[in-house]
Design a protein around this nucleic acid. Sequence first.
DNA 1: GCGTTGGTTGTCATGAATGATAACCGAACT
DNA 2: AGTTCGGTTATCATTCATGACAACCAACGC
Lengths: 73, 73
Amino acid sequence: MITRQDALVKIGRNIKAAREAGGMSQQDLAAGCNFEKSNMSRIEAGRSNLTVGTLLKISDVLGIRPADLLAGV
Amino acid sequence: MITRQDALVKIGRNIKAAREAGGMSQQDLAAGCNFEKSNMSRIEAGRSNLTVGTLLKISDVLGIRPADLLAGV
DNA sequence: GCGTTGGTTGTCATGAATGATAACCGAACT
DNA sequence: AGTTCGGTTATCATTCATGACAACCAACGC
């Protein structure tokens, strides 16, 4: 059974992949979500147990479905 | 664009549907997640902006993928 | 040299999720 | 009458995500 840590790291990787596919920087993505790039860095590193609300903001700016960020989890 | 509220309500409905499909009570599901039925009631009602960690606990006990709980969101 | 860009890390305050307890409701059943 | 069951709601304390600020690093261009 997958641990929470591993799941958060995978989600972070999914975010990073989608972000780079869109040619955005962490700065850009964070700004679109209305928070700082420092927090986005932590999220992508899997060091933040983010809420569904935050997940929605991110998927919204990335233009993908929230469920896509949970791919492989 | 879907609001956070609507998304949380949908997730709550997804949890409820999967729970009832498995013949569990809120009590059962909550106990499997190591918290109280009162909290599960709030989650299913969409009145809690739950974290990914909590989402994982629930999907684990339900025996489904976390992404399934975000269906339609 | 200097400045900029993309990203990381540390720290902080505030708000909110979590976890627990209790009271309550309706329905079913004895 | 009581009591058990599934669920809701209110309230509380503790923990933690969020959001913001600053400092830092490497790589790049001027």
